[in-house]
Design a binder for these strands. Structure first.
Lengths: 209, 209
DNA sequence: CCACGGAAGAAACTTGCCGTATCTAATGGT
DNA sequence: ACCATTAGATACGGCAAGTTTCTTCCGTGG
């Protein structure tokens, strides 16, 4: 065993801590996440951590941000429905149980650490994913699958919200069936309805036929 | 005044504790909710509480259940859109910040107290609200506002999910604008799209496999 | 090459809260 | 009037957050 490891400093040390924090989140989840465990795993000590992040929530948030960002390339399978299925699946895979326990955990401490909760909110709302959805829809319109449709910000980030909601409630990873349901029972009908709105002005609703 | 007040027992005591717990949630939120505070507020002591509920999550859950249940009467304003606005507003009022911090708080302890998390899930999913939504939609169909439409379970509880999602993210009470957005940008278009699906089998969209 | 200052790391400490155990005294039932 | 319950007070053990103190390393400037 290499006894005396040279002391890490600066970025190297910071990375080691963030990686340890992430690993700890994966292994035990947010509820059992402790600073001591992170310190032990990173082979450092608590004060070193607290010199950089002022509390647990901040460390967790930083560890999350340190992970590779989501892919932002819109899927392009040639059909709207399959594009959506790929997108939803991709989101669901990133927004798995651990991720959601983390979100929910940080949010539950919003009162204690409002700054962190705000940061988290920003990151969740500023979803560049809305752009991905728009690209998918525009392509479908170009192919003539649907009429040209403009998505409101809300409609644009809805896939995110739907998946997160599901993951939080179910507590486990989302099943394929659930994803298909979201696409077929909610998002595709919504897109059809939005397309309709263009032609049919008023709040009236589609004439049957 | 601070005389020896007669000891409460049974239901009276239980109610006092549940009320105190609820008040405490309202005042300090879930994150700062402590059993000691509840005991103090209810003018009793911790063991009395622990004899009835085995942990914090259970007490919080019970306190929630002890509150007056939501109204289940569907609004009937004569128009689909206003019915939906009333419904969403009603949900939003109940699902305010405190409520959501509680949900999120209990969920964040799912690992520690799985039973409570399960109970909470059940209560959230078994939403009798889906029935309310169905009634509203059926009435609109009877009036001829929309074609007859069947809502999947997911679509039925979507109003709930949308509002909860918003309340959790925004961290404060929902604004009227947000409610209008949810109705006009999401739920009404969705209903239109669902109506479409019945008559017009697949507007160029692949059928659900 | 050496000294110095800043940061790493170890350990002990304070505080806050959970959940439990022990004791006492009030209360309702019979 | 007695007795089984159980409210209520107090105190304790345990864990984890966040802090303090002190020692030890190590990069840098002289």
């Amino acid at each position: 065993m290499p006894e005396t490891r040279t002391r890490r400093r600066g970025t190297a040390l910071e990375q080691a801590i963030l990686d340890a924090a992430w690993a700890e989140l994966r292994d035990v989840g947010y509820a059992r996440f402790t600073i001591d465990s992170v310190a032990a795993r990173a082979r450092t000590s608590k004060p070193v951590i607290y010199r950089r992040w002022s509390n647990r929530a901040e460390l967790v948030f930083a560890a999350w941000g340190n992970q590779a960002p989501a892919e932002h390339l819109p899927p392009d399978t040639g059909a709207l429905r399959t594009d959506l299925l790929v997108l939803f699946t991709r989101i669901a895979r990133r927004a798995d149980a651990m991720m959601n326990e983390m979100i929910v955990g940080v949010m539950s401490e919003a009162f204690r650490h409002p700054e962190v909760a705000d940061l988290l909110r920003d990151r969740l709302l500023s979803a560049p994913v809305a752009d991905v959805v728009r690209t998918i829809v525009d392509r479908a319109a170009e192919r003539g699958e649907i009429p040209p449709t403009t998505l409101s910000p809300r409609a644009g980030r809805l896939p995110f919200d739907l998946v997160r909601n599901d993951a939080v409630l179910s507590g486990g990873p989302m099943t394929n069936d659930a994803i298909v349901e979201l696409v077929d029972d909610v998002y595709l009908p919504l897109l059809r309805g939005l397309a309709l709105t263009r032609d049919d002005e008023g709040h009236g609703l589609p004439p049957a036929g």
